[in-house]
Amino acid sequence: MAVTTEHSQLPSPSLAPEPKALSRLAYSLFSRTSTIFAFAVVVIFVAVAVFAPLIAPYDPLAQSILRINKLPSTANWLGTDQFGRDVLSRMIYGSRNSLIFGLISPVLAAICGTVLGVVAGYFGGIVDRVISRVIDLLLAFPELLLAIMIAAVLGGGFWNVIAVITVAFVPGFARVARASTLAVKQEPYIEAAVAIGVSTPVIIFRHVIPNIAAPIVVLMTLWVASAIRLEASLSFLGIGTQPPNPSWGNIIRDGLNNLFGSPWPIIGAGFAITCVVLSFNLLGDVVRDVLDPEISE
């Protein structure tokens, strides 16, 4: 018998090769106004953080008793705080701390949490029980309390604060990764990979993780906001960014004490956090859509 071909049944007979993931990402990114906006906001904020010394009009730490609680003016675009420091300059420098903590911690937490969750979900049994119970233990504490406890043990410092926020976020990622892995593990293509002779680590990295990436990425973008907030709370407790150095978190906290003196620090920093969080969430949606093979067609 001649081998029959079914080419005529193809939905689109175009011979053009499938666009690669990166170009599909770019296409999804720039085909929607909202995501162009989000992308622009993120680029601007990152540029501001990188070039802070060139952009900031004043030294963010310079105090002036003569210029406290000024309203916005041409000299100080966002006014001054209770120590007479320029709010805009503090926000520009503060973006460095906030973005670093806000981006590094969720990424690290996503990596650690995914590894733990996938290992627990894929291997099951005693491994799963040990990892899951430890995760449950961590989940039993509110993030902030957990962060304070760890900080009390480790002390302050840049990397310790990163570690603290990361540990606080790991349980959430591990839970999501484990649940998704349990679902993906049942898929016939995993059994097919085993039957072909693919080794377990390769199955995990090539077949499991790409198929659970979508919820992890979304969770990561959602937690950029929480990380900025948590860093602020830690600063308040004297663990995070230490005064007089600025971060958006401690600008808000200081501003709260001086709300009736000048509301501008809170308005400015709050607006910045909102913009960044919103932008990351929008970008997260795009990345999720590109990662999801069922939606991206």
Partner: peptide, 27 residues
């Protein structure tokens, strides 16, 4: 080797046909 019952589930949705067919060759 094995041929599976479910032609929808037994191919990883993220991998191209070339990657799927070449996987045992690579292994």
């Amino acid at each position: 080797q094995m041929i599976f019952q479910d032609p929808y589930g037994s191919l990883s949705p993220r991998r191209s046909i070339a990657q799927i067919i070449a996987e045992p060759l690579d292994v």
